[in-house]
Structures are given as C-alpha cells and as structure tokens.
Nucleic acid binder design. Structure first.
Lengths: 402, 402
DNA sequence: CTATTTCGTCATGCCGATTTACAAATTAGT
DNA sequence: ACTAATTTGTAAATCGGCATGACGAAATAG
C-alpha cells in the first residue's frame, strides 16, 4: 500500500478471463523464456532464482519448452565458481520465426527473425508503390514472403506469424488500412491479399518502429515518444513498455497537431498543422526543390553538401517539430523522445533547432531527444520482432503446433 | 493470435512477481469482489457464472471474504425463477473505508466512502489556503480527517487508507508535492504532516477527478481525456481504464501546450501556452475583472448575467482550449474529452467555441466533448474511491488487519 | 403432491508449485 | 589424492487451489 494505488492498468475488471492453474502455467512458461532471452544463456537454477520459482518447478517448465522446440540445451557451463555446473539454456535457433514485412512508398521488404532475435533471412524489392492498388503490390509482397519463409524453413525454422508495417493508419482490428495517403489506399483489409496460413498483424510503420526501438535500442526507456515521418508525421507513444493505440488505433497523429493556429490550411480541415511545416512535401517546397522519388535522400544529400536553402528549411522544420513536441511532452511526460524511421537521416539538421525550441519552452531540464540507431530499418525489424515477442509472451499458443 | 499482438502492457518482463497459487487466489478474491461491486447483490452461483469459476470455488472465496468483513450475506433472494433461491451477497457496509481528502485553494474537505461506494461521512472547512505554509494547512486537514475517521468508526467502518488530492504536480512517489503554484508549495513531502497510521497516497486533483469520472460517471469510456482547471490547466489521460502518469508523474500538463508559438511569454519559459489564454488569471484579465476569492464563481455569475466581456473572454478561452485539445486528441485518440473540476461550472460558455474549434480542425467526426456530472466534487470522491478500489483490487492485503 | 430446477456444500481428484532428499559434478583445503 | 563444501538437476512426497460429481435443500411447474 506504499506504492501509488493506481497504475496504468488496474488488476480488477480489466482481465475478464478466469484465473486458473493453466493460466498460471502459461505465464510461468513465458517468464522462463523472458528470463533466458534477457540474460543470455542461463542454467535452470539461474532461471529459478531470477524469476522466483523453485528449481524443481523451473525444471518441468524447461522440459516442456525444450519439447516444444522453444528452448535448447547448449551444453555444460564451465564456471569458475564452486559446485556442479549447470546446463546452459538458450532460446532455440530452430524453432518458430517471426516474419516481418514492410510496405514502403518505394520499396517492399520482408525478413525472418528467430527467437534469439537474429535476422535469418531477408528480401527487398525496390520500386515505387505510390498510387498502385493493393492487389498487385501485395501480390509482390506475398512473393517475397514465400521466398523468405522458404529460406527460413530451409534453416529449420517455421513461421509463427506475419506482421506487416504500412505507412498509414490501421484500425484496431490490426488488419484494415484505414488511410495510407502515400499509397492512396483506403479501408483495405490486407488479410484479403496475404497468405492465409499465417496469423496476420498489420500496424503503422511508426508503431513498429517504436517497438523496435523499445526492444532493440540500447538503454531505451519504457516510456518514450517515437517520431517517424514519411509524408505525414507519425509518432508512436510508448507507455510502460507498451504501445498506446487509442480508441480507433489512430493515436500518435503528430502531423496534425496545430503548430500555428492561423497557419495555412491543411487537408485535415485544420490550419497550421505540423505537417504544413515539417512534412516532407512542405520541407521540399520550402527548400525550393521538386519532389522526386527518394525525397529524404535528396534532402539529406543537399544538406550535407551545404545547400543553405535546404538547411534553412530543415531548421525551420525542426523548430516546428519542437513546438509540437513541447505539447506532446507536456501531455505525456515521456522519459525521452526518439527520432526514428526516415527522419533519422535528417536528424543532424533538424535536431539543433528542435532541441533549442523544446528547451526554450520547458521549465527545468528539457526532455532529451535522441536519434534511433536503427534508422529506416526500425519498422521492418519491429514487425518481425513483434511476432517473436508474441511467442515469448505466450509460448503455450504455439507449442501445440511445434 | 488474431488480436493485436501488443497491447499497452506486455505479459512478459513487466510483471516481475512469481506466479504462484497464492497470487491466483488473490486475483480471484479480487474478481469476486469486482463482480459483486459491478452487478449489485449477487448469489454465489451468479458470481461463479460471471467470473468463470465453479460454484464450489466461489464458495470458498466468498467464505474468506465474509470472514474478512469485505462481503456480507444480505439474506435469501426472492426470485421469480424456478429453483432454490440463492443468498444475496453485497459488499460490506461495515468493513474498510476509503478516506479521501482535498486541499483546495480556498477550502479543505475530507470524506469517508465505504466499499459500496456510499459516502458515509464528510467534513468541509472553507478558508483561503493560498500562500499558507503546509504545516498549518495540513494540521487543519488532519483535524478534519480525525473527525471523519471517528465518525466512520462509529458506524462500524475502519479506515483502509488516506488519499489526498492537491492542486499541483505530485512526484511518482505519491507523497511529494513538487510544485503547487496556487498554494505556493514546493517539494513538500506530505507524509511528514499527515497521520502516519494510515497508508497515504497523494495525487494531483485532476488525476483524482479523472478517476472519479471513470468510476462514477455514467457511460464513461476507458480511454478519455479529463480536463480540469484551477489557475493552471491540468488534464488527466486515462488509457484503458488506468491513469497515464508519465516518467516523473507530470503527465497531463495541458496548460503549457503551445497554442500560439509567438504568443505572450509564460512563466514556464515558453510563449503562448494555453494557460495564457484559458488559465483563470488570463480569463479574468481578458474579461476586465479583478481576481478575488471565488474566481470561478465570479466568472460564472457574470456570464450568466449576460456580461458580454466575460462571455467573450470565455469564448476565446474555449477556442484556445480547442486548439490545445486538437493536439491532444490527435496524439492520444481518446474516446471522449470530459470537462471536469471547477471548469465544469463554466462549461456552458466554453463549450460552443471549444467544440467548434475541435470540429473545424478534425477530419471526420470530432472527438465528443462532455461535461462531468460530478463537477467540483470529482477530486474528493476520486481520492476516497481510489482507496476503496485498492482494497477491491487486492483484498488480501487488508484482510489481515480486519 | 410430485417432478424439475437451481443453490450451496462436501468428498474426491487433478494440476502445479513447494519441500525435502539425494546423486552428480565441480572447487577448496589439507 | 582425498575429503569437505558447494551447487546443480531430478525424484518423491506434500500442499494449495480449482474442477468434478453427487447430494440435500429450497424454490417453481404441473
């Protein structure tokens, strides 16, 4: 009763499932896996002390996980310590694999990640998808998926699920793309176009990018704001190690936060939205450039060359981002803000003015802003890893198939 | 694997506690209590079917809860249905009580709420606290608390905890008031001044107001934004039925969201913060009024009389609120926005322009904005109920004392 | 007045973790 | 080299908690 009484999730009516022994078993299986994942190869005894169960209990859990093909016994440890050495346990490199896919504006990408987090297979196809209808694009994607799955199966893995990152808003059913302006897709149920034999999850590219940052980034906190951008500006809000999705799944629409209430009109009906100042099109226009295919690359190249118009445009975009982020930071009190996705390539020219604006508007120490180490790979990795995490979070569901 | 893979809280490394049978028992005790709370008097069989356990299991759980004084058997049901009638179970009216307290700018209030949610005792003391140091103010509050506790004990209740609502920022330790501008308190650990025999929780008045709305409001969703205001403008973000607190506990600082990036300077260092347009002082100034004690009452009175200056000032404040809320709604995608606390008294004059601004800036249907039925009582009720909820969420912790 | 239905409880069994005990494998000390 | 100490993994017995199935009790339906 000393801790705050109410955290983000009450124990009460939220969890409607009955609490039975099977549930306990399932949760403990997950805890064993997470302990092994988080702290490298571990003996049964080490796992037991980590998660607070007895060695005997862990033994039976480990047996089950080994039978399911989720854990592997590496061999005897060679310790400097006294006592009988244990057998090192590690996540299996031949068990289930997470298949991640990305529909970008000018590329398609697929990869397979094993339980250990290692990328075991990948495929990329360049080519503009802007304005193409979902059918052909997803047929190509399916082709890539089949290739990656086949390669993964060749290495002894089996696909546990497919997660697809798209540059647009996705409904909470995790299937339907409600609006993807860059692709010109609307209300499209992707499950109609993708392999039906794999459990499917579709999500926003920014959300997957944030998850990648959370899971793969070094020292990433459990509460942060992940800002990403293609044409629009997407953000993902991570609260206590999980995504905040919003009622309709549209949370994180940073692009339409008002930055200048009397500014230019926006397609959303508002005025002076962030997108009008820091969106890709706006920045290109402000820099006096024509949109071409690789917009971000173009901007980064010119900025690196010292093009003052481009640099000024990016500075101003950074300032606008700073204003919008001030609002977001005030509202959410995150531990940090991370710039990810395509945006990370422009960070050197955006960051100074962004940080300055944020600091100016903050009493006390400003919220730290950093750049994702993952860069444009974040969404794809996040997608693949989300499948892997789902397995780790509830091994019982996949154990049956193995 | 059909549902979205990752919700706000992963099952994985988040919960560090071992999952043992005792934990299962505790959670099931809570589920019984919540079922009875949510659906009125219920027989053991009805509870069993609600929560998915067997009648036998529920029987033993109920026995334990009755022995602990948390549940009561009301007597035999008189049903129209065939079959032996059950014994109606209800939350005890003579068990633990939640003590809620509120430190307002010009009043102190305390109340006791039983498990059923009924307020069983209350005490209020009017008097300006602005600028008074914490010692004397909290001594007075302690006096009120003692009185309320004594009265509750006279009715067979015993205090399970104390929750105090303050108009300011509270650290995540739920004890320390970091900054309360209206009181001029800074970095004050309230546990130094309050009865040590009661488990203490301190939180922002807006947060408790939001919880009251969540628990006591009719049809309140599990995801909403609760806007409250005294001098500053506080908001509380409710996500999936729980508060979003932020890393430092400062989430919801709507007052310093930039509304006009080039607007007047603010004490926070920024420019054009919402507080400059919709804060109490700003509105009074815009209306051409002098600050006096009952500021909100003054504004409401003048507006009701038809004072055009006041009405205009409130309209403009509503517009500014609309701009700030557009940002918040874009970021969080809540199901609704609720105006609560002192702000609810001014709602008739704020709402039209607020709604208009929000709708103008939103593509598609705008986020609905409503006014809290609880009004200024929200924070106090929320505080008291938070203690009650803590008991309902984990009856095992208090059962020992009973 | 009997058949039927539902409630609450008891005896029994199952499942899962704990406890206790023990053999195996290592290091430390003589 | 040999023993003592320590640690690991597993097996057997125990315990806690829920499920199952059966039963008496108390109501309604006919």
């Amino acid at each position: 009763m000393t801790a705050p009484l109410h955290e983000a999730r009450p124990a009460g009516p939220g969890r409607a499932l009955p609490d039975t022994q099977q549930g306990m078993r399932r949760r403990n299986l997950a805890r064993v896996l997470h302990a092994v994942r988080a702290e490298g190869p571990l003996s049964r005894a080490a796992v037991a002390s980590r998660i607070g169960l007895t060695r005997a209990a862990v033994s039976t859990l480990v047996d089950e996980l080994i039978r399911s093909g989720l854990l592997e016994e590496l061999g005897p440890e060679r310790p400097g310590r006294v006592g009988r050495p244990g057998f090192a346990l590690a996540l299996s490199g031949r068990g289930p694999a997470g298949i991640g896919a990305e529909v970008g504006v000018d590329h398609l990408a697929v990869c397979a990640v094993d339980l250990r987090g290692t990328t075991r297979s990948r495929a990329i196809r360049q080519g503009a998808n802007r304005g193409r209808s979902p059918g052909p694009v997803l047929a190509e994607l399916t082709e890539l998926i089949r290739r990656v799955v086949a390669e993964a199966e060749g290495e002894g893995l089996w696909p546990a699920g497919l997660a697809v990152a798209v540059p647009g808003l996705v409904a909470r059913d995790a299937r339907t793309v409600v609006r993807a302006p860059n692709l010109d897709w609307h209300d499209t149920d992707l499950s109609d176009f993708l392999p039906a034999d794999l459990p499917l999850t579709v999500d926003n590219e920014a959300n997957f990018g944030a998850l990648a940052e959370l899971w793969l980034g070094e020292g990433t906190p459990r509460d942060f704001l992940h800002v990403s951008a293609e044409i629009g500006i997407g953000a993902a809000v991570v609260v206590d190690g999980g995504l905040l999705r919003g009622t309709r799944g549209f949370a994180g629409e940073l692009g339409h936060v008002p930055v200048q209430p009397d500014g230019p009109e926006c397609a959303c009906g508002g005025r002076g939205c962030l997108e009008q100042y820091a969106g890709e099109e706006a920045v290109l226009r402000a820099a006096g450039l024509e949109p071409d295919e690789d917009r971000v690359g173009l901007l980064a190249g010119r900025a690196a060359e010292g093009d003052e118009d481009v640099r000024r445009a990016l500075r101003e975009a950074g300032t606008a981002l700073g204003v919008a982020l001030t609002g977001a930071v005030n509202l959410l009190d995150p531990e940090s803000v991370v710039l990810g996705g395509e945006l990370s390539g422009l960070a050197p020219w955006l960051l100074p003015s962004l940080r300055e604006e944020l600091a100016r508007r903050t009493a006390g120490p400003a919220c730290p802003v950093s750049v994702s180490r993952l860069g444009p790979q974040g969404p794809l990795l996040g997608a693949a890893h989300s499948v892997v995490r789902a397995v780790l979070d509830d091994p019982a569901t996949v154990a049956e198939r193995a």
